[in-house]
Design a protein around this nucleic acid. Structure first.
Lengths: 206, 206
DNA sequence: TGTATATTTAACCAATTGGTTAAACCAAAT
DNA sequence: ATTTGGTTTAACCAATTGGTTAAATATACA
């Protein structure tokens, strides 16, 4: 943290981005306070506005960064060259692991997109977003070759995303509704890393 | 709408509650504006504050109302006396239908609980919330009787909720990512009402 | 007709908050 | 020793926003 002294601009910029990400992801755009971001970064408001001209400006940087992370860590897995069943196992295990460290990201994304769907169309290209085309083709190929049952690849993808994402993004809600304590819930999630793949594979294999 | 005249207080109260629900569910607590709620209700701010002393006050009324709706419409289905497979079919068909008309509710709930987990513990009792105990027992019974495979009822419940809720709450996001238009997406959701039940039943039946 | 009550109008207040500014400060490089 | 640039301090501004108030209006009802 810069303590009333001189620092590398890039270091400070990263401090700000990390802090802003932390706050925006939890509070959302309207709930986040620039003062809180400055505090979290260990700097003052003046310096914060010196690096990012406005709240909107900073928010966009964070938002695009989140999209880039998703593109890099998830879509690329789906489009990788890998045996289908291996890929499914890897997907659930790896993706749920990432989600555990980014449990606020899905709700954040959905909340912001819900309020401004246009934010996507504009920012997606900046983040270099692409569809999981390869994965969809891979499924269709498997169906044609008779390796797996006749499944709609989009429905399968929706199911995979739902099963992986929802129980993590809704953790506090579910824990409250089902009255489950922290340790038990972690166990449940940990099991899903392998069981979900087993379940999905079992349901599509011939 | 009350047009500069006298009205039944209950009518006005309902106008306010409907408007507040509409705005809160979409914008969240921090994003909602009392002026916007007043406009949406077709009244003015003074009257709004005359009926509900504060934003927090109004928010709690809405929040508890949402919880009550969930309790009434979903938990009660899970706990109803019904053959397991019939119940699963009914659940997906009925619940997805409700979600289509309340697509902002899940993200709203998660967003608010994420920021104040205590809100649950306090408001859940007011809403008369109960766990789907009967459903869990029903699954365990089915397993013991050898009618279905050995599944963890909590995992099954998580899967059911995930598969039903996520594709609807994340609709704008998914449409953006996968580049799907409105009509196609509606078709996809419509199919899920029956296909999800088929899929789940097929995966647990012996 | 008069009274009680719901509603509007419109002005107002105080706190919050995004954003600015200018001067002072501090460390590192020259 | 001086300059340079990152950083702090602290005051400040304007807009937004939750919330209040008092008087005027309109309607139902007795």
């Amino acid at each position: 943290m810069p303590s009333s002294s001189k620092q590398e601009p890039l270091v400070t910029q990263e401090l700000i981005i990390n802090a802003a990400r932390y706050v925006f992801i939890r509070k959302g755009y309207s709930g986040a306070r620039m003062q809180e971001i400055a505090d979290e970064a260990g700097i003052n408001k003046a310096l914060l506005f010196y690096y990012f001209r406005s709240k909107e400006n900073l928010f966009h940087a964070i938002f695009i960064g989140v999209l880039e992370q998703i593109q890099k860590e998830i879509i690329s897995i789906l489009n990788s060259e890998m045996d289908l069943f291996d890929k499914l196992r890897f997907f659930f295990n790896f993706y749920i692991g990432i989600l555990q460290k980014n449990s606020f990201v899905p709700a954040f994304l959905i909340h912001e997109v819900n309020q401004n769907a246009q934010i996507l169309v504009d920012d997606f290209k900046k983040a270099g977003f692409t569809m999981p085309v390869h994965f969809i083709k891979q499924i269709n190929r498997g169906v044609k070759q008779g390796r797996i049952k006749a499944v709609d690849p989009v429905q399968l993808l929706l199911n995979m995303l739902s099963l992986a994402i929802y129980p993590i993004m809704a953790e506090p809600l579910i824990k409250g509704v089902l009255n489950i304590d922290d340790d038990s819930y972690n166990e449940i999630i940990e099991k899903r890393k392998t069981e979900l793949a087993d379940w999905v594979i079992d349901s599509i294999k011939k």
